[in-house]
Design a protein around this nucleic acid. Structure first.
Lengths: 238, 238
DNA sequence: ATTATCTATAGATCTATAGATAATGC
DNA sequence: ATTATCTATAGATCTATAGATAATGC
């Protein structure tokens, strides 16, 4: 028999066990038996903690966001500038796309998160909408301030693309890079991989946002930003 | 009782009925009963044409691509040039993302296709891989030739982003624009809609690819390209 | 004679619950 | 006394098939 845990501890273990199942097989592809087995408990106990499979699925989304405030932590340290904008674009690619590829620790959770997000978009979009509103929107203010500064300093073209869309397009590319890398076998025949691919995506976005080549040359040093980002993550999980 | 059709006709009606169901609810979310009902036949007849639900699902993907050679038709008419590159970027956004929004005829099929594609990426990626190889890869040659021409004529920066990635990143943004627009309620608070949003995405990509502002100014006229694209589609379905 | 189609149903899940048992905390 | 946990099972699907019937084409 299973060791006795408090209600809250058991809830967490069930959610943790359910996450990879729901993420990999979707709601209908996952059975309550599989979840119970993965959590090492009976289905009855699972139903004691979650009135229905649907309720468990909803709870899972909150559980999944519980410790996800990386974006908030990231922008906390920064003030509006062209450099901050460049760091933000890089950070977006790293956290959304590249951690999947390089960081064995974060890999798993990021992939699960990405899958839940896509599944939500194929469904009613509620989870995606909530996450965007809660975790990405706060970034938008800093982003706009950065764009304003960059334009004022002659680092960026003002016309053509709305400041908000500069964020969304950058975000979208990062997400899609993550998505095309979900299946085990390659789907897209990219000519390069890992950091090289990531660096190109960042450059594409910097240019897309209208940063001048001069500004890019002086603020975008992939190695340096990579180091900065690594430091940030070390400070986050010491 | 249902009117008698030939085996092939019945196959088609079943596939046509199954498409929106599988696209909207996924493989596990769709029951054989729902498919049979939607097709107006018995489940037994469905199983006579398709040995299993799995086989039907596989057949659906071929069915879905059967008439999808828009990309091939599009590049047939074009020769390598900076202008062709600009038209290609616009065409990509229009067909992948904006038809969903503006063209009531194509809307439905494009959305189904987009959903199947995303579902494939969440699964083994086989369908996505096949489609990319069959329908998008042929575009790549023209694309690279266009980039070479543009660089030679001083319209485009050569360094930083691989020619192939200029295609993939452009493609990815178009796909993600389509995906974020799948749910009925808005997920992303874009500051603009429809053609204005599309035009910004195109501009973002043109800049991202390293086209000079001068080249963009002389080759990117949204209204003109829109007209060109409309003509192309009229010629396609007269 | 062949083939498209149906009705009815088997057998396998799958969600959820009823009712019993064992560990904890006062 | 309370609460975490289990076994066993009901009731509802869900995929797939067996066997019968009616329309078509030679």
């Amino acid at each position: 028999m299973v060791p006795r845990l408090t209600a809250d501890e058991r809830r967490q273990t069930i959610l943790a066990a359910a996450l990879p199942l729901f993420a990999n097989r979707g709601f209908n592809g996952t059975t309550t038996r599989q979840i119970a087995d993965a959590a090492g408990v009976s289905e009855a106990l699972m139903y004691r903690h979650f009135p229905s499979k649907e309720d468990l699925y909803v709870a899972l989304h909150e559980f999944c966001c519980a410790n996800t405030d990386v974006f908030a932590r990231f922008i906390d340290n920064l003030t509006p500038s062209t450099s901050t904008l460049v760091h933000s674009v890089y950070f977006m690619q790293i956290t959304i796309f590249l951690h999947k590829q390089t960081d064995p620790e974060n890999n798993v959770n990021n992939v699960h998160f990405c899958r839940l997000m896509m599944t939500s978009l194929l469904d009613d979009g509620d989870f995606a909408r909530m996450f965007i509103a809660d975790q990405v929107m706060p970034w938008l203010d800093l982003w706009k301030a950065c764009v304003a500064t960059a334009v004022a300093e002659g680092d960026m073209l003002a016309e053509g693309v709305t400041p908000a869309n500069k964020l969304w397009f950058t975000h979208h590319l990062a997400v899609m890079m993550a998505v095309t890398h979900l299946p085990e076998r390659d789907v897209i025949p990219y000519p390069n991989k890992s950091y090289n691919l990531c660096d190109e995506a960042v450059l594409f976005c910097l240019r897309g946002m209208g940063l001048t080549e001069k500004a890019i040359a002086s603020h975008y040093n992939p190695k340096a930003i990579q180091l900065f980002t690594q430091k940030f993550f070390k400070a986050l999980n010491p």
